[in-house]
Design a protein around this nucleic acid. Sequence first.
DNA 1: AACTAGTTTAAACACCTGTTTAAAATAGCG
DNA 2: CGCTATTTTAAACAGGTGTTTAAACTAGTT
Lengths: 215, 215
Amino acid sequence: MSTKNKILDAADVLFANKGFNGTSLREITSQANVNLAAVNYHFGSKKELIKAVMSRYMDELSPRLESALSLICQAELKPTLHEVFSAFIGPLLHLNDFKENGTSTFLQLLGRGYTDSQGFLRWFLTTQYPDVFTNFTKAVNIAYPELTAEEIFWRLHFTMGTIVFTMSSSEALIDIAQNDFDNELDIAGVIERVIPYVAAGVGAPITNIEPLSLR
Amino acid sequence: MSTKNKILDAADVLFANKGFNGTSLREITSQANVNLAAVNYHFGSKKELIKAVMSRYMDELSPRLESALSLICQAELKPTLHEVFSAFIGPLLHLNDFKENGTSTFLQLLGRGYTDSQGFLRWFLTTQYPDVFTNFTKAVNIAYPELTAEEIFWRLHFTMGTIVFTMSSSEALIDIAQNDFDNELDIAGVIERVIPYVAAGVGAPITNIEPLSLR
DNA sequence: AACTAGTTTAAACACCTGTTTAAAATAGCG
DNA sequence: CGCTATTTTAAACAGGTGTTTAAACTAGTT
């Protein structure tokens, strides 16, 4: 295996578990059994390594996600929100074939990127992979046309939060659930449980919220 | 103002904005206009300072939260989930009286603590303030008795994720929303929008999930 | 005024950080 | 082989980290 890939494989697991700031290049290179300077030689800097780690997953995920969503948008029957969110299951679980524990690693990375490094990842995703967002918004709009653009905006970000945050700590949660309820569960099981939750959340009835000035 | 409080006031803002790992003691002490060694003198270590920052908020929040939840549990009418989650609004917004921007600072800290420092905060909260969790579970159980304990467990963690994650990036989201939709919004407005979402999520119809072994 | 306990201070400690350097090793190709 | 270009290596760099030290300072009390 190439040095570049050895670094990427070691980096994404460490980044997912300990965050970008919390992982040093020395940890990565010794885990990958390569020289310290290899990171700067092959990637230029730590920041570029982070981008490369994310891109490797996003390039694998985003085409599958886009085709799944466009399939839903073009269907004859109006899709339910549950169907819209279910469109994520396949592409996300495919990351497990792409790399061992790929799904949860990627979702953890997503969570790290959102909170570490002050919004750098949000910029990265929205500028590098804008179609994922717009297709998703479009699909939700078809499934629930009464929602205003602003309400979709907020509810989609709530959904992002639910997914990303849950998956960031999914391993710990699965452990607790197994101890307390003797229920064997894996990452796919968690996804199956979270879909009805977010679908119901996005599909919540519209409530009037008075503007600030009238309160 | 005492040196101890000057440190706490500087620390919680910096911790909220840049994370625990991302904030150095030198940043904190220079922001607070105190000597570097003051942190170790007054708190012992950086880790103890983090605990002190969180405790200051939790001690202000948890009694109000517990009484609000017990009020709901003892009411004659069965409460709706919307009412259960609305019980959080008052205690959370009270943190704004306690300290400027206290509500969003605290919720950001909560998010930091969950993802920084590998589950240390979850341990801290569940061991130091266990009543908040059990009271909350009890209230949800009254409002939606059909939910099994395991389903409540998962849905409450989804909810934690939604709230904490949204609030971690609430400032950025509010900015975007103001630009895109000309809608003035503050932290209270975000809370009002997220309550229907999580209430609907927790109240989602129960779906049968086949155990792993049968799939 | 003198002593004491609590607090603040500047300096140093040992260690870790990302990055760069220049020499050594390796591979590819005519 | 001999030459070149790519890659790997160990060492050093400059700067940042949390923590400790011992001296200086500040009340408060007798």
